[in-house]
């Protein structure tokens, strides 16, 4: 027993913890502090208690931003997870089976390509597609005689958020696909064959065999992408600046505007704090549901 694990190691933690204190802990606490003040970023902040929070609850823009964030969860989590799952099973089951794993990985890499871009660049690509005067979407609609459907996609209330969502689905699809395909390697192909012999349809195999077996990965994808959707900033900033009206405003962009454009730093800090609260709550609820589910299954 000459080797003592716990002695002499604490020193290695000092740089990491100090850096964390300065870059994360202090700003985190400061932001909560600022949220209880009225402050324009210069001069002394004025303590106003929970006024900013009360204001947020009465602010229609605040509610619109969180509602839009929820819609973005549909675009980044719900649709890509479902599509990614179906596509992963299809690639793993049908394509690998008939054409071999190289063809399947070729498709997987292809669908993953949008994910490698910075999201803001993906947004710029789609802004180019949606451009009302010379954009390719309207151009294609006009050239097949569907002029009546051509539209100022990002410039109008009814389509702006949908247009951003379309970009996000495109951007996000590859992520669940790659994770689910690696998870599927755990699934015994004989299970599928046995199910087919018993007369199960393709869809039944997905819901009864695949989903229960790769449930841990499904949880991870849902949680990480939902958090990602709540933090959305770059597409809104570069495609619509939150407009028209409040049509595409999201929490992150709303706080940015209050921090740096109004400036109304106290209120910006309040929105950021509430957003953080929502994300922490989301993670805690989700992880406890997952743990309970796992415990039920292991019984």
């Amino acid at each position: 027993m000459s080797y003592k694990r716990t002695r002499g190691y604490i020193g290695f933690l000092i740089p990491g913890v100090l850096a964390f204190l300065i870059i994360v802990i202090v700003p985190f606490a400061a932001n909560i502090g600022i949220s209880f003040t009225k402050w324009r970023g210069v001069g002394t902040p004025e303590w106003i208690g929970i006024d900013n929070y009360e204001r947020a609850f009465d602010d229609t823009t605040f509610w619109a931003s969180f509602q839009n964030n929820l819609q973005l969860v549909v675009a980044m989590t719900v649709i890509p997870t479902v599509l990614g799952l179906l596509l992963a099973v299809f690639l793993y089951d049908n394509i690998t089976h008939h054409f071999g794993p190289r063809v399947a990985s070729f498709f997987r890499a292809g669908f993953y390509i949008p994910q490698i871009m910075p999201m803001v660049v993906a947004a710029i690509v789609w802004r180019w597609i949606y451009q009302p005067d010379w954009g390719i979407l309207n151009w294609m609609l006009n050239s097949v005689g569907l002029d009546q459907f051509s539209h100022n996609w990002l410039g109008q209330q009814d389509t702006a958020l949908r247009a951003i969502m379309g970009m996000m689905i495109w951007f996000q699809l590859g992520y669940p696909l790659v994770i689910f395909m690696s998870a599927l390697q755990r699934v015994d192909p004989q299970l599928y064959e046995a199910a087919s012999i018993d007369g199960a349809t393709w869809m039944q195999k997905v819901t009864r065999i695949t989903v229960p077996l790769i449930r841990p990965e499904i949880y991870v994808v849902i949680l990480t992408t939902a958090i990602h959707a709540m933090k959305t900033f770059a597409p809104v900033y570069s495609m619509t600046k939150g407009g028209p009206g409040k049509a595409t405003v999201v929490a992150s962009y709303f706080s940015y505007k209050n921090f740096f454009e109004r400036p109304n730093v106290g209120y910006g800090a309040t929105i950021a704090t509430l957003l953080t609260g929502v994300i922490i709550l989301l993670s805690v609820v989700f992880i406890s549901v997952q743990t309970r589910q796992e415990r039920l299954e292991s019984q």
Partner: peptide, 24 residues
């Protein structure tokens, strides 16, 4: 304790730190 502390920071939105960091 330290691990929980680091894991919490993974999910933290940058908006929460942006203004104090900017000021600092």
């Amino acid at each position: 304790f330290f691990l929980v502390f680091f894991v919490m920071a993974i999910t933290l939105p940058h908006e929460m730190l942006a203004y104090p960091l900017y000021y600092m």
